[in-house]
Design a protein around this nucleic acid. Structure first.
Length: 691
DNA sequence: GAGCACTGC
């Protein structure tokens, strides 16, 4: 393994200082701006340090470098392997879900933070690692923040483990504080200057303002001076803006350079996404209309102008209702700076902010860390599995609200993943094996056990639910797409429809016609391929989960499932699937309220509607449904809805819906203030915890 | 009566 000093990178001059800090301190915070080369170079410096010190026999210790995104882990590993003159997967490798390119020789291992989190489940002290480098820590991803707390605890048990936290933003003091005042090092970046302009007046219609700005700029700025990147909030907005922009640019004088407008958002199929990266045809300026996917996830060459509407669609989770909201909100100042930076990757650029400087000052300093915006039941189950019993005392850098933590414990208790003492149960241990939401993990485990026995179908459904964008619907062909897909529709709802789609996909694959099949039915083939990957992983993990369950049953524990609804030997697959899903998703039940023509959630009595994308949107509304998720946009919509029997919900959820009149409770109880009726209620059921 | 930011295991 040879090393190249990459003398032209800003970080090279700081090498000695960085190594000195790492030698003298257990934890170091490195601040390196975009283009500093820290991601590729620091792990190489550490590798030299290790190889220099080694009188090694046997397996060398590993430098683990985490990244928030798969593409980053893969591309950086490739580049570093090349710089070191080694074959990828030997001394330098990467590991992401479904793709592990490492070997026993691997010294530098790039990986997603989620991979390291799962490795801790099987190697709780991360014994093979000498260094853990947490890159892009400023992004504050859910997995990254959980790793922060776990590594801080782990360092007490394994003081020899060294941690390097790398961040791109200057305010790294908060990281240093979290890590007991760890020393900070700075590495200059290589970023061209970006001149920022604000509007003088606030803009009422930012989409219109964006379109006007694009056209004005296009006419004012010299010919072929670079492409434009416009940040908007979502698919619909982008498609609308594209149409208007194309219309108006057609009316430009014949002498003006042409505009090529390209949309960019995650739901776009890969071939259409590629158009945003292709250079504009000669004599043409490219305008990319993008969601915040262009903020961090992808880099487009040739951008000299950024137009920032200052808005983003952000997810907010309400622990009191258990429901998600997706709303367009102002960006944070850090986000706005990140967007502006996109204009200065190759040369000096300009950024036009469609808001006043005064309003910029009112934006939040940073985007709220993800851990404060999501349902934590999966994270809490993971921590319980790692024997972190007192979740409220876990060292979160920015702790989630107590309500959110308590609510996730209630969910786990209702599912039977923890017992009345909030200790993980065998079922919980089995659930934690799966990279799934706890409800899905429980549905999958149940499906392989009597009386359900629909494991294969359930694994397919859960795999289909855990990938995005199975259906691709261009706005102009919406009716054709809907009609083509109607053949998959199940009268019971979306989960069984997804099963039908997968069965049709498999048939098409058998006759090697899946490409045509996908095209004809407006289905994203790449999503179907990831369904196959997920399905394979679930089926691979399942025997271990079943072994835990059977061992527990053998030890004299209660039967895995209530038997009151048994007799399913004669049930059809549809019926088995519906009962099995209810046995795990009973908290996500909603009942039709004929008076006000909407559904009410069983927990919390919130008003919800069937999502327009559901097969049940147009049909007559069943009395009782379970849903996969609720998202609050213009209204609260249930996504993926399935008709079930109300009595199944009451039976499987009897520890939750245990009111004397056997009606679902009126309101999700406030567990913190008023004596925790739900939690307390289940506690009274001690000794007969839910299955 | 009419809609889905972005990651990741």
């Amino acid at each position: 393994m040879r090393f190249q000093y990459a003398a032209d990178l800003p970080i090279t001059s700081a090498r000695a200082k960085i190594l000195d800090m790492v030698r003298r301190h257990p934890v170091v915070v490195l601040v390196g701006e975009t283009g500093s080369g820290k991601t590729t170079q620091v792990p190489q410096y550490l590798a030299q340090e290790l190889l220099g010190a080694a009188g090694s026999s046997g397996r060398p210790p590993v430098i683990g470098v985490t990244q928030p995104r798969r593409v980053a882990a893969i591309t950086v590993a490739k580049r570093v392997a090349q710089e070191c003159g080694v074959e990828l997967g030997q001394e330098v490798g990467y590991a992401v879900r479904f793709d592990d390119q490492t070997s026993t020789k691997t010294i530098i291992k790039y990986m997603t933070d989620g991979i390291l989190l799962r490795e801790i489940l099987t190697d709780t002290t991360l014994s093979k690692y000498a260094y853990i480098v947490l890159d892009e820590a400023h992004e504050r991803t859910l997995h990254g923040d959980v790793l922060f707390g776990l590594l801080k605890q782990l360092r007490q048990r394994r003081p020899t483990l060294k941690v390097i936290v790398m961040s791109a933003t200057l305010d790294a003091e908060s990281f240093s504080r979290f890590w007991d005042n760890a020393p900070m090092g700075y590495v200059a970046g290589r970023q061209f200057p970006v001149t920022v302009f604000y509007t003088v007046e606030p803009q009422l219609d930012y989409v219109d303002a964006a379109i006007t700005t694009v056209l004005q700029l296009h006419l004012q700025e010299g010919p072929l001076q670079g492409d434009m990147l416009v940040f908007l909030t979502g698919q619909e907005e982008i498609d609308d803006a594209k149409k208007i922009l194309e219309e108006r640019s057609r009316r430009l004088s014949a002498t003006a350079m042409k505009l090529k407008v390209v949309p960019l958002y995650a739901a776009l199929p890969p071939d259409k996404q590629m158009l945003a990266f292709a250079p504009a045809p000669p004599g043409c300026r490219k305008v990319i209309l993008s969601t915040n996917i262009a903020e961090t996830s992808v880099t487009i060459n040739g951008i000299r102008y950024v137009i920032d509407t200052g808005m983003v669609k952000a997810r907010e989770y309400n622990p009191n209702t258990g429901l998600d909201a997706l709303r367009a909100v102002p960006v944070s100042r850090a986000q706005a700076r990140q967007r502006a930076g996109r204009a200065g990757r190759e040369a000096a650029g300009k950024c036009f902010r469609l808001y006043t400087e005064d309003s910029f000052d009112t934006f939040a300093q940073h985007t709220t860390p993800e851990i404060q915006r999501v349902n934590l039941s999966s994270v809490v189950l993971h921590l319980k599995h790692l024997e972190v019993h007192d979740i409220l005392q876990f060292p979160f850098m920015d702790p989630p609200s107590k309500d959110a933590l308590v609510q996730s414990l209630e969910t786990l208790l209702a599912l039977g993943a923890v017992d009345a003492d909030l200790r993980i149960t065998p079922l919980g241990t089995a659930m934690a094996l799966f990279p799934l939401d706890p409800m899905h993990a429980k549905a999958l485990i149940n499906s392989f056990l009597p009386p359900f026995r629909c494991g294969r179908a359930m694994a397919v459904i859960i795999a289909m639910l855990s990938v995005e964008n199975v259906f691709f619907t261009p706005k102009s062909e919406q009716e054709t797409a809907d009609a083509k897909r109607r053949i998959f529709a199940s009268p019971y709802g979306d989960q069984l429809t997804l099963l039908n789609v997968y069965k049709a996909y498999q048939k098409a694959k058998k006759r090697r016609g899946q490409k045509e099949w996908a095209q004809e039915h407006y289905i994203n083939l790449r999503s179907m391929a990831s369904v196959d990957d997920v399905l394979g992983q679930l089926l691979e993990l399942e025997p271990a989960a079943r072994a835990i369950m059977q061992k527990d049953a053998g030890a004299g524990a209660a039967a895995a499932n209530p038997t009151a609804l048994a007799g399913v030997e004669l049930d059809s697959e549809d019926l088995q699937v519906r009962k099995c899903l209810t046995s795990a998703c009973f908290l996500n039940a909603a009942v039709w309220s004929p008076g006000d023509r909407c559904y009410r959630t069983a927990v919390g009595r919130n008003t919800v509607h069937v999502h327009p994308g559901s097969v049940l949107f147009q049909s007559q509304k069943p009395n009782c449904v379970i849903y996969n998720s609720v998202v609050h946009t213009t209204q609260r919509f249930m996504r993926f809805v399935l008709e079930v029997e109300e009595r199944w919900v009451l039976e499987y959820g009897r520890y939750v819906y245990r009111a004397p009149d056997s009606q679902p409770k009126k309101k999700r109880p406030a567990t913190t203030a008023e004596g925790s009726s739900f939690l307390g209620g289940v506690k009274r059921a001690r000794g007969e915890a839910p299955p």
